[in-house]
Design a protein around this nucleic acid. Structure first.
Lengths: 123, 123
DNA sequence: GGTTGCGTTGGAGCGCGCTCGAAGAGCGAG
DNA sequence: CTCGCTCTTCGAGCGCGCTCCAACGCAACC
């Protein structure tokens, strides 16, 4: 009854490749990953949650370096950094809003072009 | 009364760098760009429209190679390729719709986290 | 003892979309 | 004649986010 999992299992549970998981660690997105007596990564459920969160930020377009910043805040200061972390999240949320707006404008234009059968010159 | 413009002017009008404009040409996104007697690119208004369209597709997430495919259809077949071109546009529009849906889900989650003040573990 | 299997590390490579630099041509102005 | 300007081509370089390899370690199984 180990309650910890190897890299393969975390990979399976998060749908993130072992290569990418090691990369995230090197890149500072996962700090202080525990090891077993043989030096192998030994993850717990909290890592499943963290990777899911991390992927969410990535999919929302946040860059690796900013996620690292966030991860370091969590690691170093915990609760004390909460307001700074919220600020990061809020700022990124605003960015996502903007991208959403621009993207739906693109969608509109595309829809119109498709509906019109496109201009004669292809534009 | 030249009615044609150099690369700098097209750049200014489209907000795309001269380097990028040359790159687009090399990449097959702009075909048969006319030259003046000194071998310099001589663009017309149709190029302004084409670059704007091209940037629209890029901003909507279409890859260079697919835009090239589209450009080649316009060039080679003109009106005859219209249905195939519409198909490409329609397919990409559907992709944009999907990305829009996923992005707004990310926005929702982010909004919720920000509103909740985030989970204690930073996720 | 050999092989299989799962893990480790460091570092190279890749695909994308530009971006930039070097070297040079052709023109007008001073 | 030289300077400065804008343009040309070719090819290298870059930032991002992985992705993959080579070489090795260690335990278990036949």
């Amino acid at each position: 009854m180990t309650d910890s999992m190897g890299i393969r299992e975390l990979s399976d549970r998060t749908d993130v490749s072992p290569h990418a998981l090691r990369y995230y660690e090197r890149a500072g997105l996962m700090i202080d990953v525990p090891r077993d007596d043989r030096g192998r990564r030994a993850y717990g459920d909290e890592h499943v949650r963290w990777v899911a969160f991390l992927r969410r930020l990535r999919d929302a377009g946040m860059g690796i370096s900013q996620i690292r910043e966030y991860a370091e805040l969590v690691r170093a200061d915990g609760a004390a950094s909460r307001s700074r972390r919220l600020e990061i999240l809020r700022a990124h949320r605003d960015e996502v809003r903007d991208r959403l707006a621009r993207l739906s404008e693109h969608l509109e234009v595309l829809d119109r072009k498709v509906a019109d059968g496109c201009a004669p010159d292809g534009t």
